[in-house]
Design a protein around this nucleic acid. Structure first.
Lengths: 237, 237
DNA sequence: TTATAATGTATTGTATACAAAGTCAGCCGG
DNA sequence: CCGGCTGACTTTGTATACAATACATTATAA
């Protein structure tokens, strides 16, 4: 049964709960499991070929990530996300990313700048590709930001920021489709990178702020478009 | 077996995992379970009179809270916390509490200010009491800050800030013993409250910043005192 | 005496069984 | 025709059994 796992871990040991967790998480973020959809233990267990135990433990983790909501004795369902919550998340992210960028300008090493440049380059190349997979694009974007987070050397900040970004992955696919948006992101990344390279705190902060504000607008726009067709994200419960 | 639970929930239903989670969490924060101590499922299950299943699920939650560290196939142990991590946590808290205070100055209602005053008064009275229980004192302090968080109406921020504060509860008991420190905290709370009342953003932010910086110093002082006697918090793993 | 191998025990990882509660459809009475 | 009740079915909550791994101890050989 260990052999039939969706090929995820080539070498090292990973508990089933972790595999299940990553699988479900990915499915939620990719929209394969839709907001509000019920997560039933037995059917998940059958589908993934494991018993209920690892499923339950994975759900506990998803619950804490905020991707799943539990109602006692009534089971788990994929968390809905309201516009207000999105706004809340971005408000916090703005504050923390500013902190990160400020910190980085003071203490980033040349080696780390090199890595950042590399990540940015990969992202830019992905954008330029004609028919780039939105998932790959998203991952490249993720990499760039993760590099910034890592350079702070504040593990908890890294963890919190990753979690906050994660909340938005479900929408990223949508607005990353727009060619103009993607180009703009590349520009912004480069500008931020430049400011960091020059250790220009003020400018880096300003740009980062703008970057988040733009992201907010992009998401809201794509949300409105989606809502125009069909509602489903505007009420919390 | 449900009846023998450490009387926690008088009325509403709560899954065992939640009871176990709260119990263990409290024991970690109070220092009854010491950093580095192993958490063995069977002995915990026996001690709390439940089976391993709810214990395991509670541990998953503690793991995500950062109070417990898991090593696959080798079990869970209470998280150590290094000086660096404490610094990291406070760095984030400073940034977010500043955001909270700023936000509050703009949108707090008179009613909420009233509640904040009440919470502050309760805390001040606790401090003045001759032999006040440090736990009660800590809780009153917690209440005051939670009021501030709540006034932001940003649920995720409330959750994150509570979690970050939680990380420090293990040390709070120590430094709250010092009468001078406690008096100073009351003063600072009142000053912050006043600034908020006047909607003076700049001043409120400045005071909040100072409040956190002082907290940092207090904790570091009490940590150094502790380390002078016996080491145990300075290495990460 | 020391290093290494073997073996037994303790502990976690996973699966399954049983209990309790919730949901829903169909039936009966008003 | 509508509303409440009953009972089967679903689903979660909890306990336990079994498997696999890691750790410690002891014995054996160099």
């Amino acid at each position: 049964m260990r052999e039939s796992d969706s090929a995820l871990n080539p070498e090292e040991y990973m508990p089933l709960r972790e595999v299940v967790f990553l699988t479900l998480r990915s499915q939620i973020l990719r929209g394969e499991l839709k907001p509000g959809e019920r997560l039933m233990e037995i059917s998940l267990a059958n589908r993934l070929g494991v018993s209920r135990t690892p499923i339950r433990e994975a759900i506990r983790k998803l619950e804490h990530e905020g991707l799943v909501v539990m109602i006692p004795r009534r089971g788990a369902h994929v968390a809905e996300i309201t516009q207000q919550e999105l706004k809340d998340v971005l408000e916090i992210r703005k504050s923390l990313e500013i902190l990160a960028v400020t910190k980085i300008c003071r203490c980033i090493t040349d080696r780390e700048i090199g890595e950042l440049e590399k990540a940015e380059e990969i992202f830019a190349r992905q954008v330029m590709k004609k028919d780039s997979d939105p998932a790959a694009l998203g991952e490249a974007d993720e990499q760039f930001h993760e590099m910034i987070y890592n350079a702070t050397h504040n593990r908890r900040m890294i963890q919190i920021l990753n979690n906050l970004r994660e909340q938005m992955y479900r929408f990223r696919m949508e607005y990353l489709k727009d060619k103009e948006v993607r180009m703009k992101i590349v520009e912004e990344h480069e500008a931020i990178l430049n400011a960091i390279r020059r250790r220009d705190e003020q400018e880096a902060v300003r740009l980062e702020q703008e970057h988040i504000d733009n992201q907010y607008r992009s998401i809201m726009k794509s949300l409105e478009e989606r809502c125009a067709g069909r509602t489903g994200y505007e009420q919390s419960e």
